[in-house]
Amino acid sequence: MDIAGSIALITGANRGIGRHFVDQLLVRGAAKVYATARRPELLDISDSRVTPLYLDLLDEKSIVNAAAAAQDVTLLINNAGIATGANLVTDDLDTIRQDLETHLFGTLRVIRAFAPVLAANGGGAVVNILSVLSWIATEGTGAYSVAKAAEWNMTNSVRLELSDQQTLVQGVHLAAADTDMMEGRDAPKIAPADVARASLDGVQARAIEVLVDDPSRFVKAALSGDPAQFYSRPSGS
């Protein structure tokens, strides 16, 4: 799939990784970019190829309306997300459900709405921004890790279901990017532009999985080993 001439729709395009996807798509010659957000009026748009749209992953009507308005889409980028920081054992279940409703069911709603659009336009591609936390959990990431693990296998299942219509389904994994969601967290962070670049390079190469950074590559390679390397506490801790 060639990015030049493509027509893309990005969820969560107002900031962070989503905003850099907009920039990268324009640089690579996309014909049109639908930039979606819960508050599209706040989008900073300076290119006539960018069309703002309202889309909220928890509002199914907004997803249906976006799909009706963007019948020419050939590339769907599911980037929008949240991180409640909820603890699985002690926090409110409704808070935990917010992570799952957003990352699993919200993203799936968008894919279901746009799958017929992509099919009608020759197949195209779906990109899901996942996480290294699709594979492991760390302290303070319980609800988010569960949601991303579910979204990862949803991505794999959707890939099989959309194969007959020639739709590429790509999962993108990274540890941490320098975005508002990660603000204040003491961890190495990559530039969000690097995520967009790596993903779009992968789309052009028809890669079904993109590991953006070293932590993602390390964890993926280590999954066949003893999980104690991730979860054992040092003696005395």
Rank of each mutant, 00 (worst) to 15 (best):
V195M: 09
I17V: 15
S6I: 03
S48T: 12
Y231Q: 08
R38Q: 10
F21H: 06
D214H: 12
V158G: 05
A222D: 10
L75W: 03
W135L: 06
S224T: 15
A207Y: 01
D213T: 12
S199I: 06
D59R: 09
R28I: 00
S163I: 12
T107S: 14
A66T: 09
E151Q: 15
L57N: 00
V27L: 11
L75E: 03
M154A: 11
N79C: 11
F230L: 00
G85L: 03
V132K: 04
D59W: 00
A143V: 12
E41A: 14
E151S: 14
G202T: 00
A13K: 01
T155W: 07
R39L: 12
L26Q: 00
V89A: 14
Q170G: 11
L76W: 06
A191C: 04
T36Q: 04
G5Y: 07
L43A: 10
L118F: 04
H103S: 11
Y231C: 10
G184F: 13
L133I: 02
I82F: 08
P234D: 07
L211H: 05
A228C: 01
V64R: 13
L200F: 01
A4C: 07
S145I: 11
E101M: 14
L168C: 10
V169Q: 07
E209F: 03
G184Q: 12
A119M: 07
P215L: 01
T11C: 14
A222T: 09
V22F: 08
D194Q: 14
A120C: 04
L200W: 04
R206G: 03
A147P: 09
P215H: 08
Y231N: 09
A222Q: 14
T179N: 03
V203L: 04
T155M: 14
D99S: 11
N156M: 11
M182Q: 08
A221S: 15
E161I: 00
V169F: 04
I129Q: 03
D72C: 04
G12C: 10
I96H: 09
W135Y: 12
M182N: 14
T107V: 12
T102L: 05
A205E: 11
I45P: 02
A125M: 06
D2P: 13
M154V: 13
S134Q: 01
V169R: 07
V73I: 07
S46W: 00
A13S: 11
A80F: 08
G122Y: 06
A113W: 04
E41F: 02
T138M: 15
D214M: 15
L58P: 03
I82Q: 07
L53W: 05
E151V: 11
T167N: 04
A191H: 12
T11R: 08
G85R: 04
G12N: 09
Q165K: 06
F105T: 06
L223I: 10
D56E: 10
V172L: 13
G12F: 08
G85H: 03
Q204N: 10
E60W: 05
E183L: 14
A13P: 05
E139W: 02
D194Y: 07
D164F: 07
A83F: 05
P215I: 01
P188C: 08
P234Y: 07
